[in-house]
Amino acid sequence: MLAKLLKHEFKATYRYQCGMYIVLFIVSIIALVLSVALEANPGNGALIVTTSLSKLMAIIVRVAVLVVTFVMAILRYRKNILKDEGYLMHTLPVKKWQLLVSKLITPYVWTVLNIIIVYLSIALEVRDIDILSLTTMDLSSAGLSSGMIVMFVLAMAVSLLTSYSMFYLCLNIGYSMSKDKDLMSFVSYVVIYLINQVIGVIEMFIIFAFNFESFSAITKAQTFPVEYFWMVMGSALVISIIMCVIYNMISVYMLNKRLNLE
């Protein structure tokens, strides 16, 4: 059943995703063509302005591609699970965790695809497919090993999943109330955000408390604390995974025991 849910979820979302990719491709091509034209006519004032504008437009569309998927996923969850369309979804013979997982996997896959498409659009605009290695080289020269970069990417990947889970949980809590559902969702978000901040502060405090001497030495030496990267990122990753699991467990509970489609 999860495969069927995913099939219909991708079917319902591919239109605006593909629409955004087409728009991004077009603006990247325009930026490329204008850049080539500017290279051929370096002193052309009109070309300088239009090329700059096209590059700015390409940047805006790239940001939009990354943001819209996230926003649409949240809005779609609200509409498809907690409002009128929920009458359809909650009467399907599927388990609640399958509904939730389908809503997590789909935007996640689109986000990964977004990153690849945005990367390709930048590569197209600058006419260099290997821009990633340049970025990696920059990071390496800043003292980050490839293992640390992988760790960073992994932490970001888990963090994205945790963010979706947190937003879904806030909506599930808000919509289990008898009135002011959107307001209560927002209040839930503020409360959970504050709890997260407290956990983050406690985490940092524990790390600093156990390594106070070492950190003092690093501060005096004014060097990048590379040796503590693994500790900080590792603990952030573990906490993110734990929070993600907790959010989703509560969400499944809410959908099973506190569903309230009035």
Binding site: A12, D84, E85, Y87, L88, T91, L92, P93, K95
Partner: peptide
């Protein structure tokens, strides 16, 4: 639960099909 949903056919009092479909 899931088992009962597979044998219950429900028509709500409001439009509930996704309008884009």
């Amino acid at each position: 639960g899931t088992a009962t949903k597979s044998i219950v056919s429900y028509l709500p009092e409001r439009p509930y099909f996704p309008s884009s479909m």
